[in-house]
Write a protein that binds this DNA or RNA. Structure first.
Lengths: 336, 336
DNA sequence: CTGTTAGCGCTTTCAC
DNA sequence: GTGAAAGCGCTAACAG
């Protein structure tokens, strides 16, 4: 059997309570006693029993993290960053993958609560707002990341998608492009909606008409990129630039371009969304609107730690600004 | 406060002990009572308190998972598969990222034990064998995945790297290639060592000399691919095929090829190692030796579940055979 | 500042 | 079959 607090107390010749206080770093304790107990505990190799503590305090030092998958670069970054930061703060993360499925998410949340997570960082499906709110009610802070839950007053850390798409489009516009193809996610998703809106706004501000044929909407899949790029490039008057604001479809777009023997940026300019190591290493290196996954992750952890420290739910939405990273895939039409 | 076993017992008009037995599905209990209790519990929305249970039983229904990072495709797959399977079996996974750092791993293992994980699937750094063995001693089954710990009798699920590299090289040989460049990981790593051995064996069996200039060793990084590919392609008599058995360096190789304007497979054949969605979508689609990350993950979970079910440590090493996936990046020199 | 004490909610002997 | 009761190891009043 492992060494318990009792053993430490006995060895240090104090009561269990004192030992507990010493180890917890309570303020009401003699410094000398404290040092002594800590020393004895270390010598004995004492490790506090997390179950007993949790049973008493209702705090597990566990933090839940749910993401849709680990294929998406942003979610990978989110998982890595959250794991590292949370661990550094003395917590552990329970990772769950929802598959963007509401039913699975429901079950996951339930289990996470069973395991007494102290807090949760979630990329929500959007369908389980009530349950998430119930967690908040049960004093378990919830921070939404990347996606938000409509109508629930949960703290959310989101990307600046509207501005990102707006700035990306303006970049292309500034380079002299007038026909800009957009490949974007479904209109039901926040990011799909916002990125489309950003694109439109930039075009409208430039006094350009919005040609519906230039906008391709589709699921977050490589195949979407294939279909969309083919459709766009087969247009009677094809675009001079493609703004691929649907990250998962990027790889499909790349394939179509290779298959058609199109050279970038001479024949076609390319601007992607959400950076990935692959984009930088591609030749030509691909310019992107970086949505700041690492920054979102960090901010989400910051918020969670605040909340864990007793700060009340602000119900507020935080936005991490996107950033344009110019590489070599966009041609300047103005001064060739 | 949540509803406890006591509440259920009271509502069902039985003792706490009976309620516990009913919910645990104990054999010595009246079927009728059992059904009744289960019903009442469900009606009350009872959820068993995992801390109290764990305090009593020493079992947390938590499984630890440590990987080096989440950038590597194999580790992503490992994490996804383990998470899904373990969850389906009624456990949760605590994810930890070691950064392939021995000190960090040490701390992680300690914390995982503190949290009372029932088992562990680890991609070990190789340096903490004693600690891992201590976990086994403490009845916590440990399954090593992808990497092994030298000299520790831990169950390990590994890739068939020697055979994989051997078969990959033979494939190229069969296509008529005689000068095959190899880009591989450091000789200190098991996979680096084994893949090199497989390459050599295939060459030797074919009665071909091993030209040291054709073998490029380096760390698992994109930059390795850049340096190695440049070195190989600048040779007076450059190779006709590149076998990139250092996954992380693949992207660097791709870049060099694009920069040099080399066309694949006409000018150069390409064979990569460890599949990634990117390889399939690349044009030409890249042939790979797939090391079977998903299969390793599944096997590791299978083994862990067995062990959790009481099966003793076999101390055995399991190998998942690699598989050659032919796509379009290797030219047949024999009948052009 | 320190010790005594009462549980947290559950499982599990041990009687009946 | 079922119930009573004894803790698992810890924290947090409450006294002193």
């Amino acid at each position: 059997m492992a060494v318990t607090l009792r053993d430490v107390a006995r060895a240090a010749d104090v009561s269990v309570a004192t030992a507990s206080r010493a180890l917890a770093g309570s303020s009401l304790i003699n410094h000398v006693t404290q040092r002594h107990v800590v020393q004895v505990a270390a010598a004995l190799g004492y490790r506090t029993n997390t179950f007993a503590r949790a049973l008493k305090t209702k705090s597990s030092r566990l933090v839940g993290l749910t993401v849709h998958n680990l294929d998406n670069a942003s979610f990978q970054v989110l998982a890595s960053v959250v794991q590292a930061r949370v661990q550094a703060a003395g917590y552990q993360v329970i990772l769950s993958i929802s598959g963007d499925d509401a039913a699975q998410e429901k079950e996951i949340l339930r289990t996470l609560v069973d395991h007494g997570v102290d807090g949760l960082i979630a990329v929500p499906t959007g369908a389980n707002g009530a349950q998430l709110l119930a967690m908040e009610h049960a004093e378990i802070p919830v921070i939404c990341a990347v996606r938000r839950v409509e109508g629930a007053s949960l703290e959310s850390v989101l990307a600046g998608d509207l501005d990102g798409a707006y700035n990306g489009t303006r970049h292309l516009l500034g380079l002299g492009h007038r026909r800009i193809g957009l490949i974007v996610g479904p209109g039901e998703t926040t990011s799909g909606k916002e990125r489309l809106a950003g694109y439109r706004r930039a075009l409208q501000e430039a006094g350009l008409p919005i040609d519906p044929a230039l906008v391709q909407t589709g699921r977050y899949l490589p195949a979407t990129g294939v279909a969309a790029a083919n459709a766009l490039l087969s247009l009677p008057e094809p675009p001079t630039a493609l703004f691929v604001a649907n990250h998962e479809s990027s790889v499909g777009v790349l394939r179509v371009i290779a298959e058609r023997g199109i050279s970038v940026p001479q024949d076609l300019s390319l601007l992607f969304y959400e950076d990935s190591p692959w984009f930088e290493w591609q030749r030509p290196a691909i310019s992107v609107v970086d949505s700041g996954a690492a920054e979102m992750a960090n901010l989400a952890v910051d918020r969670l730690m605040q909340r864990l420290g007793g700060v009340a739910n602000s119900g507020r939405e935080y936005r991490v600004g996107s950033r344009l990273i110019e590489r070599a895939s966009c041609l300047n039409l103005s001064n060739p």
